[in-house]
């Protein structure tokens, strides 16, 4: 159970042409668990996820250590990386509107994952894709299979993408705001599906989100990022006991059901948060 899937040590990422690093010395390890990375937009949380899949052309990525299972990620060639991406490590992206190919049927896009990584017939891939669409609670999956992205709702698009990314049964799934486009009723279902997969198949999950409720309920551990650094690491259950003023500020800024109607607390950003390391 406690086998390490991913080891990251002192990860630094600088975008091409940028004067400073977007991610500054991030270290963490991931076992067969659900790890949440929270922070505001611009904190570098998505950048970390993309760097793991090497999806940052033009950016300089350095790390003392960056291991995925038995692989040393920085030393892999692009050709070897193609066998990792989508097969052993996949990423559920933020916005289905921009992440699905607008001129291909959604079902074919899902089946492509299977066709690409496994030797199989097209009919077989289609069956796999249909089963996966059903697993993400798409009613009438045969009809949806033949639809184009503009014909389905944003929520359904996100479920299609989750189906696509889980079809190859990867070891590590990086979910970048996987449910921010979904309704709260559907969101729980989808998160429960993800949760089921992580538990049943021993998949490691990195959940990148700005939603504290989400990581509280669906992660084991949480990293809180601010301005490219990890400011605090907590067990998800202990989120309310957070010590760092930034984490506490984020928690206080959130409206709560049954809360008072007093103006919400607004984050008072301190310059020293930029430099300290948890």
């Amino acid at each position: 159970m406690e086998k390490t899937i991913l080891e990251v040590e002192n990860l630094r990422i600088r975008y091409g042409g940028a004067p400073t690093d977007a991610v500054r010395g991030v270290s963490f390890t991931l076992g067969r668990e659900r790890l949440g990375i929270v922070g505001e937009s611009g904190s570098g949380k998505s950048t970390v996820g993309r760097a793991l899949l090497r999806l940052l052309p033009g950016a300089t990525i350095t790390a003392d250590r960056l291991r995925f299972a038995e692989l040393d990620l920085p030393s892999l060639s692009e050709k070897e990386m193609l066998k990792v991406r989508g097969r052993r490590m996949s990423m559920i992206l933020q916005d289905p509107k921009f992440s699905l190919n607008p001129i291909r049927r959604v079902g074919d896009q899902v089946a492509e994952t299977y066709l690409r990584h496994f030797r199989c017939s097209k009919a077989e891939a289609r069956d796999k894709a249909l089963a996966m669409l059903e697993a993400v609670k798409i009613r009438d999956s045969k009809r949806v299979y033949d639809q184009y992205p503009h014909e389905i709702s944003g929520g359904m698009g996100q479920r299609v993408m989750i189906a696509m990314m889980l079809l190859a049964d990867p070891d590590l799934v990086i979910a970048d705001e996987p449910t921010s486009a979904l309704d709260v009723t559907v969101r729980l279902q989808v998160l429960n599906i993800l949760d089921g997969l992580v538990r049943d198949r021993g998949i490691g999950l990195i959940m990148i989100s700005h939603d504290l409720n989400l990581v509280r309920n669906f992660c084991d551990r949480v990293l809180i990022m601010y301005a490219g650094r990890i400011v605090e690491t907590l067990a998800a259950a202990d989120l309310d006991k957070a010590k760092h003023p930034y984490t506490r500020g984020l928690l206080a800024a959130q409206p709560r059901i049954g809360g008072g109607r007093a103006p919400l607390a607004v984050l008072d950003r301190r310059p020293e948060w930029l430099e300290e390391i948890a």
Partner: peptide
């Protein structure tokens, strides 16, 4: 972000108190 949402919600709340606006607000939250 939640931190920014708090600022905007506070702003909308304040404007309503000051000006008596009627709001129709679509949200999923």
């Amino acid at each position: 972000d939640v931190s920014v949402q708090a600022e905007i919600l506070n702003l909308l709340q304040r404007l309503r108190e000051e000006r008596g606006f009627t709001y129709i607000m679509v949200t999923h939250d």
